[in-house]
Amino acid sequence: MRKLISIILLGMVATGLFMSISQIPFGEPGERIGDHFINQGVNETGATNIVAAVVVSYRGFDTLGEVSVLFTAAMGLGAVIGLVRRKKTHTPIEPASLIVYTGCRFLFPVILLVGTYIVIHGHLTPGGGFQGGAVIASAFLLMYLGCRGKRIRENLSRGLESLGGLLFILLGVTGLVIGRDFLFSFLPEGEAGNLISAGIIPLIYMAVGLKVGSELTGIIDHLIEDTDELPE
């Protein structure tokens, strides 16, 4: 019964969606703000990765919001779990095999390096703060999986998280302080394609990378923490 009703209703929704979508030509160029970004983006922002230009520069406010969403989720997670003091693990955890252990420890700095690279080169190549941050967090995930029992210091991760966010805000407010708009790119654009170019985009991406990396790590950390707690 429920299935039947669902199918009927979803059929109706699908019809509506389809009738609307049929008005949007697929794969055809149209009059869009994206054209301006492609044509003028390099000039205006100095970033060769136009997506990065859009994310950080044109729609930088979205990114601030996005960072806040992630921050909210991390905080919410912590609040829901409701643990502040970490219990010392009473049951001894079975260690991973030596190969895995060593492999993880070997890969950990490499992944961190790759993540950092992706963050810093966000304005030049595909990638950026979020992607790099996710890669950095994956390094910590690897550590959790491979080197059981090792934990990051929660205070440190939260401090970094906080710093990343504040850095973003400060970069934004600087624009206001110099008498322009919030998130105004107050640094020179430089020559497109250089590492040090594109105004404040790399800086913001660094802040974002810092924040996303530490936040995702924190989230993973919380999830692991809570599964330890579960009854068998």
């Binding site: 429920r2 669902s6 209703l9 979803l10 929704v13 019809t15 509506g16």
Partner: peptide, 20 residues
């Protein structure tokens, strides 16, 4: 909550139906 989601979809479907 399944019912609640159903209400939401129902609302959407009815609105689309009205237009059609």
């Amino acid at each position: 909550v399944g019912n609640y989601v159903m209400y939401i979809i129902l609302f959407l479907a009815i609105l689309i139906f009205i237009q059609l």
